[in-house]
Design a binder for these strands. Structure first.
Length: 419
RNA sequence: GCGGGAGUAGCUCAGGUGGUUAGAGCGCCAGGUUGUGGCCCUGGAGGCCGUGGGUUCAAGUCCCAUUUCUCGCCCCA
């Protein structure tokens, strides 16, 4: 083991992997542009209260997974554990709502959570997400969900499950909550320890419990969908209607409860069977009160986030070949001192012509330079020796066909460009 | 926070019951061509056997601790 390794739960994305990541990010940017979402970049850390007050004190993330530290100014700061709250903070701080009726934003950034690492779960992970602020129209719920589905399909995840639920609003959720508590009251001492806590603090999360006994006990529990107020049930019906029209399959999952307290109405998750236990590749929901809670005016919103790490892993498992560009156009091999000097200049001028070019800087033999060129997947090797320099030409070898011919220096860039 | 598996060359892994200079394949470097890649042949470099302690005449091998990775619980992306 080397003396220094990447900290637990973090990892290096090496040059062999980064083209894939760049490709995924660029597809995401393209689709966002297509749907008119604009990029926003927010700080890596925020004031701790932004998260503690808005994600929910009792959520796992806030209660035990945040990277919180006291800065020199004696302020408590936290590395962002999720992407939405910072975007909302920026939206409110800069009063973006005053400029446009609906602000459609996207971000690509790292999130940090102190969790036990396992397959598809890291302490630092990259999240891509969108937030649409300013509209309560169910059509925008459908837009956000379809943007996500579009993205997954475009990059090659053809099979996924879209789980959908509505978790109501402050109008109807308290009544539902009460119904659930009444239902669970008699069984609370048979529930698992965490569910007993949930019963007290956040009963809805009991629905989400994976312990078989709890699941069994909660069979027949009242469903949120039966308790939605008129507004929420109408909204939910319309979202489903749009998704159906869009041809996006979904599964209604009454037990789907998201991890943060700010969600209202629509909640959804994208699940892929390829991954292990960490099978959620993306998710999101509506948060009609979050902007006000962060200090802005009454502004409805909806968003979703997806984990790039998990997506990359899913694509690997699926064996999806991404159209990543690799290899250079030209490798210039210089022979001897004179050849090397000439190569330095030629490489520079080919690059100025926009031709991806590289050369050797370790004084290797021609044979060794050819091997390097091959490894770099160079389309052509341009050989410069004394003979070529004297004749003001270059020997150009086509590495695919092994054909080789002499090209006047003047025509070289043009010849390589046409390739 | 809890439980299972694992840590030997850059990578993937061998190294019965403890016993001399720790091996292979791939990769890397060089040679087989006075200036030519992929295939092949030959040679070479490269290991505090995760770390610390213990048992022993002797530890990669046994014991303990620790750390990292890994898989699962929980939660989520």
């Amino acid at each position: 083991m080397p003396e220094y390794t990447a900290p637990r739960g973090t990892r290096d994305i090496l040059p062999s992997e980064t083209p894939k990541w760049q490709y995924l990010e660029s597809v995401f940017r393209d689709i966002c542009a297509l749907c008119d979402y604009k990029e926003i970049r927010t700080p890596t850390f925020e004031h701790t209260e932004l998260f503690t007050r808005n994600l929910g004190e009792t959520t796992d993330v806030v209660s035990k997974e945040m990277y919180t530290f006291i800065s020199r100014g004696n302020k408590s700061l936290t590395l962002r554990p999720e992407g939405t709250a910072p975007v909302i903070r920026a939206y409110v701080q800069h009063n973006l709502g005053a400029g446009l009726p609906v602000n459609k934003l996207y971000y690509i950034g790292r999130s940090f959570r102190y969790e036990r690492p396992q397959a598809g779960r890291y302490r630092e992970h990259t999240q891509l997400g969108v937030e649409a602020l300013g509209s309560a129209d169910p059509a925008i719920d459908a837009e956000v969900i379809s943007l996500a589905a579009h993205f997954f399909k475009t990059v090659g995840v053809k099979q996924f499950e879209l789980q959908l639920n509505s978790i109501g609003c402050p109008e109807c959720r308290p009544a539902y909550r009460k119904a659930l508590v009444v239902f669970a009251e008699a069984k609370v001492d048979k529930l698992c320890a965490t569910c007993a806590t949930r019963y007290e603090q956040n009963p809805l999360r009991m629905l989400d419990c994976k312990v078989p006994e709890c699941k069994a006990l909660l069979v027949g529990a009242p469903k949120m969908s039966d308790h939605l107020c008129e507004d929420c049930s109408g909204h939910f019906a319309k979202v489903q209607g749009y998704l159906t029209k869009f041809g996006i399959d979904f599964i209604l999952d009454p037990s789907l409860v998201r991890g943060f307290d700010y969600y209202t109405k629509t909640a959804f998750e994208f699940v892929s069977g390829e991954l292990g236990a960490q099978n959620a590749i993306g998710g999101g929901g509506r948060y009609d009160n979050l902007v006000r809670e962060v200090g802005g005016s009454e502004t409805p919103g909806i968003g979703f986030g997806l984990g790039l790490d998990r997506l990359a892993m899913t694509l690997d498992l699926l064996g999806v070949e991404l159209p990543v560009r690799d290899g250079i156009t030209a490798f210039v091999a210089g022979l001897g001192e004179v050849g090397h000097e000439a190569a330095v200049e030629l490489v520079r001028s080919l690059r100025m012509e926009g031709i991806p070019t590289d050369m050797d800087y370790t004084g290797r033999s021609l044979k060794a330079q050819m091997k390097v060129a091959n490894k770099l997947k160079a389309r052509y090797v341009v050989i410069l020796g004394e003979d070529e320099i004297r004749a003001v030409v270059a020997t150009v070898r086509d590495m695919k066909t092994s054909e080789q011919n002499s090209v006047p220096m003047m025509d070289l860039a043009k010849a390589l460009k046409g390739a």
